[in-house]
Amino acid sequence: MRSLDNKTIVQGIRNQDKEILKSIYSIYFPTIKRFILDAKGSEQDAKDVFQEGIIIIYRKIKEGNINLTSSFKSYIYSVCRFIWMKQLSKERENAEQLDVYLEYEEIPDVRLDEYEKNEQYKLYQKHFLRLEKECQKLLQLFLKNVPLKEIADELGIGSQQYIKRKKYKCKEQLVRYIKSDPNFKEE
């Protein structure tokens, strides 16, 4: 298994290079998995945490906001550990103890609001993908301000009035899905 330097990793994540992402998974996932299993999580938890860790890092890279001064191994480990600890602290009785522990866990530049935003968006996107494909496409085209005529052509729907009604229904269905999720939090 080849090792990767930080620059290659950052570029690979930014470009969503599948080969680099595969290598990152092969090299770093076992450590994350071991930590999560040791901390009473499951293999599925480990996969979820790893995925969110990479996505948070991607967001930071995209915003030009990453400060990778240590090895990537330490960085991703810290990010994933932080995510897992935050999840545990929501559920566990000894949340206070965990918070004390997390004082040492402060990660270089992932702020709590970035973590919270990622959690919210993950939930919204999960339910967005539950919508039928036509709904997904329709909402995205509307939000990208594509003219109604073009939307109608692209989706092969003649009536622009129908498109507007459909868009409304799709959005309301999405909001309903989201609000009925047990992990949804009112702000």
Binding site: K18, Q51, I54, I55, Y58, Y124, Q140
Partner: peptide, 28 residues
């Protein structure tokens, strides 16, 4: 809430990354 939802569902790159990661993790 509705504005955040709109932001989230137009994050094509993140949706794509999630899909890629899912694929890699499950394939592996």
């Amino acid at each position: 809430l509705r504005r955040r939802i709109n932001d989230a569902i137009t994050e094509d790159d993140i949706l794509n990354l999630r899909q890629n990661l899912n694929h890699i993790i499950n394939l592996e």
